[in-house]
Simulated scan of single mutants.
Amino acid sequence: MPRRTIKDTDKSRNIQVEVTGELNLDAMEEALIDAASALGLTMSHITTLSRKKYPNNRHWHFKEDLKAKGCLDVTYWPAGPFFWITIRNYEPEWVHRSGKRLASLMEERLAEF
């Protein structure tokens, strides 16, 4: 069966990180916050995306500086399982740079599960 992917749009691109094990939302959040902290990012918001399209997902916003412009969006949907980082085209350079670095760190950490 071919691997499903989260599709990019004309306004953003997604970096999908492979999830091979079964991680519940709390375990994923712990790994994500640890990786983000190592990059100097702070979680600013937790919510969900479309509950119809991705039921029981968790969606986080990370910032380099809570007062600065820009936001890095991260989503985990255990039923997929899908973990992806969304980078909107108009975001500041730190978002693009941090998104790539966070994806690499999460690949390393998720390989341990």
Score class of each variant (00 low, 15 high):
residue 37 S to R: 13
residue 24 N to F: 02
residue 39 L to E: 03
residue 24 N to T: 09
residue 27 A to Y: 02
residue 33 I to K: 00
residue 37 S to G: 15
residue 39 L to D: 03
residue 38 A to K: 15
residue 38 A to V: 07
residue 45 H to G: 00
residue 48 T to P: 02
residue 48 T to K: 09
residue 23 L to E: 05
residue 25 L to N: 11
residue 22 E to V: 12
residue 29 E to T: 14
residue 35 A to L: 03
residue 40 G to K: 07
residue 47 T to W: 13
residue 19 V to N: 07
residue 22 E to L: 12
residue 20 T to R: 15
residue 43 M to E: 13
residue 23 L to V: 13
residue 18 E to D: 11
residue 37 S to I: 01
residue 19 V to P: 00
residue 20 T to P: 01
residue 25 L to E: 13
residue 20 T to A: 13
residue 35 A to G: 04
residue 29 E to K: 11
residue 27 A to V: 05
residue 25 L to P: 02
residue 20 T to I: 12
residue 33 I to S: 01
residue 45 H to N: 13
residue 48 T to Y: 04
residue 30 E to R: 12
residue 47 T to Q: 09
residue 24 N to E: 14
residue 19 V to E: 00
residue 33 I to L: 03
residue 21 G to K: 15
residue 32 L to M: 10
residue 48 T to H: 10
residue 39 L to F: 05
residue 21 G to D: 12
residue 48 T to G: 04
residue 41 L to M: 08
residue 30 E to F: 00
residue 47 T to M: 06
residue 29 E to V: 01
residue 45 H to I: 00
residue 32 L to S: 05
residue 28 M to C: 00
residue 23 L to H: 08
residue 29 E to F: 04
residue 25 L to H: 06
residue 41 L to D: 01
residue 40 G to V: 05
residue 36 A to M: 11
residue 36 A to L: 10
residue 30 E to T: 12
residue 28 M to Y: 02
residue 44 S to F: 05
residue 20 T to V: 14
residue 30 E to Y: 06
residue 18 E to K: 14
residue 43 M to H: 03
residue 45 H to D: 07
residue 47 T to R: 06
residue 23 L to W: 12
residue 41 L to C: 00
residue 40 G to Y: 05
residue 37 S to N: 15
residue 33 I to G: 03
residue 19 V to K: 00
residue 49 L to A: 15
residue 34 D to C: 06
residue 30 E to D: 11
residue 41 L to V: 05
residue 23 L to F: 13
residue 27 A to N: 10
residue 21 G to F: 09
residue 19 V to Q: 05
residue 37 S to H: 14
residue 47 T to A: 13
residue 42 T to R: 08
residue 35 A to N: 01
residue 45 H to V: 07
residue 35 A to T: 07
residue 35 A to K: 06
residue 31 A to Y: 10
residue 26 D to Y: 03
residue 25 L to F: 01
residue 31 A to I: 06
residue 24 N to C: 09
residue 26 D to P: 04
residue 34 D to G: 06
residue 32 L to H: 01
residue 43 M to C: 12
residue 49 L to K: 10
residue 46 I to Q: 04
residue 43 M to R: 15
residue 23 L to T: 06
residue 22 E to K: 14
residue 30 E to S: 13
residue 42 T to F: 06
residue 43 M to V: 04
residue 26 D to M: 05
residue 39 L to M: 10
residue 25 L to S: 14
residue 38 A to S: 15
residue 24 N to W: 05
residue 33 I to Q: 04
residue 23 L to A: 11
residue 48 T to R: 09
residue 27 A to R: 08
residue 36 A to W: 02
residue 46 I to V: 15
residue 34 D to I: 00
residue 28 M to S: 01
residue 19 V to Y: 03
residue 29 E to D: 12
residue 49 L to T: 09
residue 34 D to S: 13
residue 19 V to L: 07
residue 20 T to W: 09
residue 44 S to W: 03
residue 41 L to I: 07
residue 44 S to D: 13
residue 29 E to N: 09
residue 41 L to S: 00
residue 47 T to I: 08
residue 49 L to H: 14
residue 23 L to R: 09
residue 32 L to C: 07
residue 30 E to V: 04
residue 47 T to D: 14
residue 43 M to N: 08
residue 32 L to V: 08
residue 27 A to T: 08
residue 49 L to G: 09
residue 19 V to G: 02
residue 38 A to E: 15
residue 37 S to A: 15
residue 41 L to F: 05
residue 37 S to C: 04
residue 32 L to T: 03
residue 42 T to K: 04
residue 48 T to I: 09
residue 26 D to L: 00
residue 22 E to Y: 12
